[in-house]
Each structure stands twice: as structure tokens, then as C-alpha cells.
Design a protein around this nucleic acid. Sequence first.
DNA 1: CGCATTACTTGCATAAGGCAAGTGAAATTA
DNA 2: TAATTTCACTTGCCTTATGCAAGTAATGCG
Lengths: 140, 140
Amino acid sequence: MSISLELFGDRWSLLIIRDLMVRAYRTFKEFQQSGEGIATNILADRLRKLETAGIITAEAEGQDRRRVGYRLTEKGIDLAPVLLELLIWGARHEQTGAPCELIEGMAKNREAVLAEVRRRWRDRDPEPFLPEFGGGDGQS
Amino acid sequence: MSISLELFGDRWSLLIIRDLMVRAYRTFKEFQQSGEGIATNILADRLRKLETAGIITAEAEGQDRRRVGYRLTEKGIDLAPVLLELLIWGARHEQTGAPCELIEGMAKNREAVLAEVRRRWRDRDPEPFLPEFGGGDGQS
DNA sequence: CGCATTACTTGCATAAGGCAAGTGAAATTA
DNA sequence: TAATTTCACTTGCCTTATGCAAGTAATGCG
């Protein structure tokens, strides 16, 4: 676990992974404008480290050759259970802005939720799984 | 989740929680000597923050009035699923030194593992749930 | 009383993070 | 086709956090 924490033990890495996983973000710009306000140099650094660690890939996608598309690897999508538990914990114990009933529903159907997340990843489904919950006071 | 990460988004907080949860650490000194080598000022800072966040409590325990005993709150023990998933992920995808069969066994019996962790917490069982796995190359 | 132990704090050096502006290549517009 | 915009970063500078070694106050122990 200490090894894992050398990777995720910072404010941003897991948020990036979450955005890839449940918000279907793909581009640098999307992460940058993601509301949490990560600085561009830090974002570039984290993307590089996550790629080095084999958790995400960066590849050109579409016609626009400026655009870089980031995606989770299998190793990355395997973090879904961790993020789900963190989401559930946060909804129970902190003010997160995510509706508690929704999260409790997910807590009762963990396997189904994880299966759906994996399905979207496999199918490259561009539809976000969760919205931003930004309206209220907190963030998911 | 971003709120949770303001708390756990560092190298040490989750390790401290893990040590409380599965290694049954209680005292400042135990954390300090825990192999990972946290500096004492940082340790003091993290313990304070975790206490402020309501994840651990600090209380005098035993006769020795120098000794402070740290314990998880209910909010803290509720992080067990997060740590378990992180442990499983690490064992699958990183060199952790923890025997994979053991962890895969836990992955197949998540509920039983969590129930046992909670039981030990409730009973204040001073027996560690997992050893340190320090012998080889990595850490749990 | 004197020394050891426990849980810290302090001071200082280094590393990481944050902010604003800048760069270069590709696309879009005039 | 020239100018402008977009995109994915990089650079420089400053602030904050982390790490290390040493120190301190309150106990406990012989």
C-alpha cells in the first residue's frame, strides 16, 4: 500500500482517474476546466506519471492532430472499486454535494455499478456515468 | 471525493489509518518506528488533522500518563473498505511484498474480512490483523 | 535525585505545488 | 495565404509542504 500511495498520495492523481472513469474526460483541456482548478504544470506532470505507471495511456485520437486522448488501462480501470468505496465513504461522512440516496443505492449494488463502469470503459462509451455534482456546496 | 482527498491526499494519512486498523498500533512511537520512516513533525501534524477530521481520537490510556493512545472512530473504521480495495489493487498490480494468494483470498471474502476488522476494532483486540510484510522488497 | 522514555516542537534546508505568462504546432478564419 | 485561435503543454518565480536533526516538557523508574 505504501507503494500505491507513492502514486496516489497526492491531491490530484485520483481525481484525474475519477474523471477518466466516471466523467469520461479525454483531453487535457477537460481536466483543466474540471472545476477543481488544477494547475496546468501539475496536470501535465500527473498525466505523465500515471502514464509511466501504466494506469493511463496517451494517444492521438480523431482527425485533430493536436488533440491527445487519455484513457485508462486495465490496471487503471481496476481502481474502480477503490474509487467507489471512497465515493461511498465521502457521501456518508462528509459534505459532498452528491445526493446520498444515489450513493446509498450504489452501495447496495456495488457489483452492478462496477460492471457498468467497466462496460462503458470497454465500449469506449463517451457518456459520463456520473455528473459533476458541482451545483451545491461540495464536490463528489 | 475531492473533499476526501484534501484529507487523504498525502503520503502518510492513509498509512497511519492502515496501521491503526490492521496493525493495531496505538502510540506515537509505534507509528514513528513503523518502517516507512515518517518524520515526527509530520506524524504529529497528521495525527492532529485526522483527529480534527473526526477520524481518530487521542486519549490517555493505561497508568502511564505520558502515553497517548490513538484509536479510530467509527468514521475512521468505515474507511476499511477503501483500504481493502487499495490493498487488493496493489497486490494485483504492483510489487507489494504481501503474498498474492493471501490477498486474493481476502478479495474472495471481502465481507468476512471487513467483519473481522470491525470486530477487532469493537473488541479493542490488540492482535494485529496483518503482519508488516517487510521482509521482501515492498510493503503492503 | 538522576537518567530514560514518551510525545511532541523548533529551526533550517530542500522539494513540491500554485500562478501567470509563454511556446510551438496544428487548425480555423479572414 | 496570412493572421488568429486552439490545444497541449513548458518556464520562471514565489509560496507552501516535507524532511532532518536537535531540543524540550512531562512523566516514570531505580
